[in-house]
Write a protein that binds this DNA or RNA. Structure first.
Lengths: 350, 350
DNA sequence: TTGTACGCGTTATCAG
DNA sequence: CTGATAACGCGTACAA
């Protein structure tokens, strides 16, 4: 951590101009090979590396894209981050991750920071619940003034930017149809922070699907809560203990796999056998789905593809006119054992 | 994305000098309040935010710390990242995450990038397996020339920097003693990429613990493999199918919870009851441990505390002489149900 | 309380 | 092939 050499030091020591040093470091222009070697030797001796700040100042580019999302402690977001990182790196960009907390407003100085750093673009990713976040719309508006913005979220708000999202309809339809085909009639839905019948696309779609199949649309079957394993436990407990046994649902669709995990634990604690007494479906196809007992049937939203598309759209956004648009990736049902489909199990329509 | 206003534009439009604009944005020095308001109005109108690059160039500080670690797709690292992020943010620093791939050498241009960006410090975190990574020592040496470096890893290599690590002895001792106290005598160890009896502290400690308790130290009980759930499945299958049933271990210690998860699945597939037929202990105390069936007994290495300590040490490193040292956080055994301790279950010493 | 002028480290342009 | 020099945007002495 001695005082670091600058391009001037290198130039002076090598007896050349700074321009020539740049020519060597950037590798591009023609330099007599003897000069190049001499300069390179000095560079190596000092461990000289050009400063990104000075370069950014001069070029106006930082080769950095910002990524704003909830904690990667949630493995769904970890997957999105990872894929964005890979795609960006492959294109010569670096990703800078900023975390926001669920239910908290977007910190205004976070937005400032992204602008201050003059990033070349930003991706906002967040589940449906965060889209109603205080300050989101303002944040995007400010950001859009400075750089291209891509969001990974349901197109429920008019965000006026490129929006890449998963298949919210399929995400509700697939599990409902699957359960219906297996003979289930009383199907419950737990999780999310949405108000069903209100703003949430996901909830709306679930209800719509139920109605399309002529299934009971009992408010007692909808538990509105968080989206982690603990909420899953609580949701099941609250729902079932508030219901006579004969009115219990025979299947539960969870907002995500985390909730399903909690729900399964609670159901087992209550002495229910899975999938015989209760079928369950999660969402996200997380790594642990194959390892639950029974293995969890779930919906894959293909977050990896959302992430890499987001990067590609962002990186090409500069060359296009600003035309906001939406892109959707279809959902896929991953059938495992938590509904009994593979056991040939079929619920009596009781 | 119009051309962005610079401090000059603001100054000109407000009829003041750039110095005054700085005084307003930095909020510090005395400015006549009428001037301040006028300038601020122009700033707001343009959405002007000073450039970090220019600032960094001028101040020599980026308020950025780099973090290099394996994919946060592994929830253990996700936890470390999150806590580092929080601690850094609380101190006015931002964290820039760089991912390295297991078993790959450290990409040299990654190191260049960190130096180029003139970060104020770097934290290297990585499990024991990555410490033998090609190029790690070189990378650290280069980096140390430019900025303070803190590593979160076992102090097995002479890295000559501040090293924060978890309790590798306790991490082996705790589970072995626990199982021993429950009556287990044949204890196996799966996972990691280490060569037991060789470089790995973790493996060494396990063997040492076995010997201290006079337990059989059978090479067939040590399966060297990866460290994810799939490896756990494979390890169990390979180990048990290579052994007559009467020689099977009665307990398995897994390198981490991921492996334990896979192991449990495989054990159940083979028709074993947990914990009656096989006890199992993981490591890391990940969120899913409470949700496995049976709930997984594990060791908590307190990665959160490692992370926040790392940040604190890094941020104060500049003010101290360069004295490399090690810091250790003790491990804790988290007893759940996968060994039967809570059921009062006690293995016959067969 | 405000303004002037220079340095921060690079790259690009233009001239040689 | 190489060198001089002007930006790039900001903060900070120093002066007024």
């Amino acid at each position: 951590m001695d005082k670091k050499a600058t391009i001037y030091d290198i130039a002076r020591e090598a007896g050349v101009s700074t321009a020539t040093v740049t020519r060597v470091t950037s590798g591009s222009a023609k330099v007599k090979s003897s000069t190049r070697e001499r300069v390179q030797r000095i560079i190596d001796a000092h461990g000289y590396v050009p400063s990104a700040a000075a370069h950014a100042l001069e070029s106006g580019q930082t080769h950095t894209i910002g990524l704003v999302m909830p904690s990667i402690t949630n493995p769904y977001f970890a997957r999105i981050y990872s894929t964005i990182y890979e795609e960006a790196t492959a294109n010569g960009y670096y990703v800078w991750l900023f975390q926001i907390h669920d239910n908290d407003p977007i910190p205004p100085n976070l937005i400032d920071e992204i602008i201050r750093r003059r990033m070349d673009g930003v991706i906002f990713a967040g589940g449906i619940w965060s889209m109603e976040r205080t300050g989101l719309a303002d944040a995007l508006t400010r950001l859009k003034h400075h750089m291209p913005v891509v969001t990974i979220c349901p197109p429920t708000m008019q965000l006026d930017c490129i929006c890449i999202h998963s298949d919210l309809v399929g995400c509700s339809r697939l599990p409902v149809r699957h359960l219906h085909a297996l003979g289930h009639r009383r199907i419950a839905f737990i999780g999310g922070s949405m108000q069903l019948r209100d703003s949430s696309k996901r909830g709306e779609n679930f209800l719509q699907e139920l109605r399309a199949l002529d299934l009971p649309d009992d408010p007692a079957y909808h538990v509105n809560c968080g989206y982690n394993a603990e909420s899953g436990e609580g949701a099941v407990l609250r729902m079932l203990s508030g219901l006579e046994r004969r009115r219990w649902p025979t299947a539960i669709i969870a907002f995500n796999d985390l909730m399903a995990l909690g729900a399964m634990k609670q159901l087992k604690n209550m002495g229910l056998r899975l999938p015989q007494d209760m079928a369950i479906i999660g969402c996200d196809n997380q790594f642990f789905c194959s390892y639950t007992d029974p293995a969890l049937t779930t919906v894959d939203l293909h977050p990896e593809e959302l992430g890499s598309s987001a990067v590609r759209e962002l990186l090409t956004a500069r060359d296009r006119a600003h035309v906001p648009f939406n892109l959707m990736r279809e959902a896929t049902l991953i059938v495992r054992e938590s509904c009994g489909a593979k056991l040939g199990y079929r619920k009596l329509s009781d």
